[in-house]
Design a protein around this nucleic acid. Structure first.
Lengths: 135, 135
DNA sequence: CGTTATTCCTATCGGATTAGTAGATTTTAA
DNA sequence: TTAAAATCTACTAATCCGATAGGAATAACG
């Protein structure tokens, strides 16, 4: 299940991408428009800033704005940042690999094989979708 | 992320499918072989029994066995039973649909569109994979 | 300079979920 | 009648999630 964090993050990005100018938009404006708890959204936007997707301006008339054009914001990056690994099990994760502590040999593991296939499919979608495709 | 419940359930099913006869196998045998907490596995097998995938025999020499042939045990059923909805958001779930309380119109929602695509892909995999494919 | 509006940061909290445990009950084979 | 197994109910510890609180830093503006 998609966490609210991810969902809210996506909605905020969409909201920003729909703006006509890319002047800073205040958190409060986004949270009101999208029905999101302001404080929660605050922390989400902060993490989106840290990965270079959003820029921010402090102080009066400050706010958040897209740092890249929507075409260049890949869903795989957003999903990984907010939701975590795209893989359903750590042992098939490309960016967050971890060996299972059960399972002596993962090349023989049926679950492993299945989940590789799911990951490849999902990743394929997220790699080929940008923020622009959500609008 | 796949829950341990699902992972253990899948591994137990695979273990049972690999048996030569389909005489009952005791929980303790499965749990030892697959490194799974016996009591936890107990509850998992119970739910797999309730959906008609496993049969059980009580008492001495009792245990669990497959009720259908591995080809007839679809991953979509197992996943839905153990892991819950396949969709990442309730508003795109076929079997567990729920409207979002934010989001006035889901036909206009970018997240919705994206998640439909992911669901279709994942579902396609799980519908076309059976337990037999995991072996 | 001082006030105000904003992001930034840290800490905390309640509730839900997950993974696992304990123990008693029922059923069956031998 | 005994032992071995599934079944059932209840509980617990740990973790995560969504949200909140409060203050610090920063910038605009009069």
């Amino acid at each position: 299940m998609l966490s609210k964090k991810t969902k809210y993050g996506l909605k905020a990005l969409i909201f920003l991408a729909r703006q006509e100018s890319n002047a800073p938009v205040q958190i409060s404006a986004i949270s009101k428009s999208e029905n999101i708890s302001q404080k929660f959204l605050e922390s989400i936007l902060l993490t989106l800033r840290k990965i270079g997707v959003l820029g921010s301006k402090k102080g009066k008339n400050g706010g958040y704005y897209l740092l890249k054009s929507p075409e260049d914001i890949k869903m795989s990056l957003v999903m990984r940042t907010l939701e975590g690994p795209i893989a359903m099990v750590p042992c098939v994760s490309l960016n967050f690999y971890e060996k299972c502590d059960d399972c002596p040999d993962e090349t023989l593991c049926g679950v492993h094989k299945l989940m590789i296939e799911v990951r490849d499919n999902t990743l394929n979608i997220f790699n080929n979708k940008s923020l622009a495709d959500l609008i």
